[in-house]
């Protein structure tokens, strides 16, 4: 678990520091202030495979039409004349190897490099599927959990009996769910199905976006043990009545599995539920607001004492 992180020269962030991080960190802020960029930075710092991380980020940003990945990565630099980015323990830089452009990531104990002189489809096709691993850091973007990863790791989850815990989590939203599994129903990857308490089988998707989000969160927490889970727009699909229960489960599970969570939201209900639950978990929950007050992009931290005020007096902090 990291307690502070500094990001330099990445996108909107000339030099952004988040201090006194908690186990469960929620980030708010207006549109285009850099919330998702902050999550991208946190992911690029730790993702097991730099190439897969880059592909995911480009796909989420709908950048598949760009001729060369280089053109996209060049936009990352806050100062275009300085082609390196510092994120926590990692340094990302564009280097020229034998006349070709590469993105290199150096971090303690390891380094990786990918060629940038290719299109996104080329980069995607050349990725080694075996390299697509969670390995202590997983990101769930707005489009949800990567279905390929879910399929790849599902059996591990069943082997360890943790799918039982996931059923209990899904029961927060629908108590009639009795069992869950993945099933080949003609999609390119297996899809989640559930049995209800009368042993009727249904695709989980019929229960809506909130259930899919919850499955992704549960899966993410169980596969990021002692690692980092990143979730963009965490409240997606969750009714405000459910958010307090979900946060309570997230706080408990993240502590039990030693996972550090970073999530964003736009929802006032989500912030209020987070504030209420975090008051019962001293030192665990932190709320940050990215804002550009007085011309400086900054991360304003709200500790548990301030979150208590946010909750009790319904103070608007987004």
């Amino acid at each position: 678990m990291v307690h502070e992180i500094q990001i330099q020269n990445f996108k909107l962030f000339k030099d952004l520091k988040l201090e006194d991080l908690g186990r469960v960190n929620l980030i708010v802020g207006e549109n285009n202030i850099g919330k998702t960029a902050l999550l991208e930075a946190l992911y690029l710092e730790r993702a097991h495979d730099l190439g897969s991380a880059l592909v995911q980020i480009m796909q989420e940003r709908k950048e598949s039409g760009i001729p060369f990945v280089l053109d996209y990565v060049k936009r990352w630099f806050h100062n275009p004349s300085q082609l390196d980015i510092d994120i926590g323990d990692s340094k990302l830089e564009i280097t020229d190897i034998y006349g070709g452009n590469s993105l290199a990531r150096r971090m303690p104990g390891s380094s990786s490099r990918i060629s940038l002189d290719q299109s996104l489809p080329e980069l995607t096709s050349r990725l080694d599927p075996a390299a697509k691993r969670i390995a202590g850091c997983l990101a769930i973007w707005q489009t949800g959990l990567d279905a390929g990863l879910r399929e790849k790791y599902w059996d591990d989850l069943v082997l360890r009996g943790e799918h039982e815990h996931i059923v209990k989590v899904l029961q927060l939203l629908d108590p009639s769910i009795k069992r869950i599994g993945l099933k080949d129903d003609g999609h390119t990857v297996k899809q989640p199905y559930y049995l209800d308490n009368q042993d009727r089988e249904y695709p989980l998707g019929r229960l809506g976006l909130g259930m899919s989000r919850l499955l992704g969160l549960a899966f993410g927490l169980y596969f990021c043990k002692q690692g980092r889970l990143i979730v963009d727009e965490i409240e997606t699909g969750l009714h405000f009545d459910a958010q307090e229960k979900v946060w309570r489960w997230i706080f408990d599970t993240a502590a039990r599995l030693d996972v550090q969570l970073f999530a964003t939201t736009h929802s006032l209900d989500c912030v209020r539920a987070f504030a209420e639950v975090s008051t019962g978990h001293p030192e665990e929950g932190r709320l940050y607001r990215l804002d550009c007050k007085y011309g400086v992009l900054r991360a304003v931290k709200f500790d548990e004492e301030q979150l208590r005020v946010v909750h009790k007096q319904a103070v608007e902090v987004r």
Partner: peptide, 12 residues
Amino acid sequence: GALLDQLTVDTR
């Protein structure tokens, strides 16, 4: 107390 609490929160 409630007024002072509100001042401790950095709002927009």
